[in-house]
Structures are given as structure tokens and as C-alpha cells.
Write a protein that binds this DNA or RNA. Structure first.
Lengths: 162, 162
DNA sequence: TCCAATTGCATAGATTTCTAAGTATTATCC
DNA sequence: GGATAATACTTAGAAATCTATGCAATTGGA
């Protein structure tokens, strides 16, 4: 008896029944934009000795100084171990001091140093400049619509996740 | 002579001359949306044993199989060492095979396995479902406008970087 | 009051990403 | 044809992020 030929894969299971080109995927487009923003931000703030990981925490602390690590994690939207690592590097870089809370000794309050406060205006202008460049050629009215839509998408996805 | 009082920080340098609330920053909004997309995608494809790092490469290979690693890096938009790591994990997971090119022995061709091909339709439907959920409550006409704007932003930022 | 649950932070280890530098193969140019 | 440059991939090491787990301080209920 001749050897049985290798069974072929059933072609139906491989057919391209589903198409979903990246250009039609909001997720894909958002990812690309995110990476473009990140790259530019990272390069520009590096000139001030600030890393992207530190940026998000500065952004929050410039609004509300002296938060606990847990509060910071929640506002920045990162997990607490990530916060620990970021704050450690910020401490080393002289951007914050961590103070054990007097009232509740479990808590650590995070306070900006004078150095970090001095960086505020200039770094916020850097961020705004990047946004301005990104928004070139888009009408203000359209931009307002854009912001509403992307915030809506985030809210939709957060709701799905419970 | 009484001790001189501690000199105060010059208030001008710390004043909040610049304001840039996150809700008005496209970069911030894009980041939030990106994270929401990522989290949901990661959870859903994990059920198929596929990680987020592998996802992007599958997405490209489902369109064009047999690319070299350099080509893949360019299309996925990641650096080559990242590609090496992702492909190694995909090889271990039985999603691809890497074949030294016969014509140019520097090159490595990346080919999908039958397993990876079988996953295609179902995983693309997962991606589309996430996009559908994100886009709930937004009119198709508005969505087209959204896609144009976010692609424009990415292009604007890429151009700035040279 | 005291023990268990909760809260706040930290550590350990894995994954994903980058930059910088190394190795092997191929192409170029006198 | 052989030195040099360019190309394709890999390794090494750092950073940022996550999940799972651990420890210390506080709170709450019997």
C-alpha cells in the first residue's frame, strides 16, 4: 500500500473570511498616535533630565503636591509597584522627597522639590508645543469634537472592563 | 544681630504662569485611550495564548507571510531587537517558523504556522469587537472624521521628528 | 482589649520596549 | 581579487510596566 499523502490543512479554516485593515481600526490608529506623541515627548524632556516615567507623576504633582503614593498611583493610572519604581528614580533625581506621614505612619507623602517646581512652566510649555504641532491643520471646532470622541472611547472601554 | 530669616524661594519662578489641563491635551487623551485599548485587547487575546507583543506581528503576517525580520520590524514599527524577542516567543509558542533565506543567507524569513493561520479569523473578530465597543455612541460620519484627524496628528508628529 | 481584616507600601520576577554594540553575510570599488 | 562598506540579525543592558506576594501600621468587631 502506498504511503498516505500528508493530510492537507482544511482550507476553510484559513480563508480570509474576516478583514480588518489597520486603517479602519481605531485601536491601531490610537496606538500609532500614542507612540508618536511618546517619542517626541521623551526626546524633548530628556534635555531637562526628566524621563517619560517621571513625567506623568510630575504632571499630577504640579496640580496637587503632597499626595500619598496610593493617591498618586490612582491619579496617574499606574499600578503601585510602578509608582514605587518611578518615585525612587525621581527621588534620586532630586525631583521629590518622600515623607512618612505623621498622622498615619503607613503613608508616604510625596512632595516636589524646588527644582521640580522650577521645571513646571517650561515643561508644560514643551507639552503644549507638542500638542500644537500634532494639531496643525485641524480646525479648533474639529479638535473639540476629536477630544469628545476619544474621551468617549476611553470611557466606553473602561466600562466594558467593569 | 538677629539671625537672618531663611530666604524664601523666589515666587515668580514657581508661579503657575502656564496652565495645560490634561483634558485639553490631545497627547494625554490619546494615552488614556491607548491604555484602555491595550488592556482590553491583552485580556481577550490571552484566552488564545497570544500576548500583546505577539499580536502586532501576527497582524502584519496575516496580511503578508514570509517577510524578513527587518521588513517585519519596519511594518510593525518596532526596533529590531524588539522583533527578535517577540519572534523568539512566537517561535516557542508555535506561531511562526524562522527560515534562513536561501538567496541571501543574512536574511531570516518568518512564516506563520498552520496554528497561527487558524487563529486569524477569530482574533481579527476579537479586535473588531473591541473597536465596535469603543465606538459605541459615535456616528459613522464622525468616526471617519476621527480617523482622519488622528492619522493627521501621527503624520504631523512623525514629520517633526524628521 | 485584642485578634482579624484592611490599608499602604515594597519586593520579586516576568514581559516589552529601547539604545548601543557585536557578528556574519553580501555588495562595492580600486 | 581583496579591503572596505553596507546590510541583516543578535546580544547586552537598562527602563518601565505588569501580577503576585509580603510586611508593617491601622482599624474594627466580638
Amino acid at each position: 500500500m502506498p504511503p498516505r499523502p500528508k493530510s492537507r490543512e482544511k482550507p476553510t479554516s484559513h480563508r480570509r473570511l474576516v478583514e480588518f485593515p489597520p486603517q479602519l481600526s481605531s485601536g491601531y490608529l490610537v496606538r500609532d498616535a500614542h507612540r508618536a506623541f511618546q517619542r517626541l515627548l521623551e526626546r524633548r524632556i530628556a534635555a531637562y533630565g526628566v524621563s517619560r516615567g517621571q513625567w506623568y507623576f510630575l504632571r499630577v504633582l504640579w496640580i496637587t503636591d503632597g499626595l500619598s503614593q496610593r493617591e498618586l498611583s490612582a491619579r496617574v493610572g499606574m499600578m503601585e509597584p510602578t509608582t514605587v519604581i518611578a518615585l525612587r528614580s525621581m527621588d534620586r533625581a532630586g525631583l521629590i522627597r518622600r515623607v512618612r506621614s505623621a498622622g498615619d505612619r503607613r503613608k508616604v507623602e510625596v512632595w516636589l522639590t524646588a527644582k521640580a517646581k522650577r521645571l513646571r512652566n517650561e515643561l508644560l510649555m514643551v507639552a503644549r508645543a507638542i500638542t500644537d504641532e500634532a494639531e496643525q491643520g485641524i480646525a479648533p471646532r474639529e479638535l473639540a469634537s476629536f477630544r469628545r470622541m476619544i474621551a468617549r472611547m476611553t470611557a466606553n472601554l473602561d466600562r466594558v472592563e467593569r
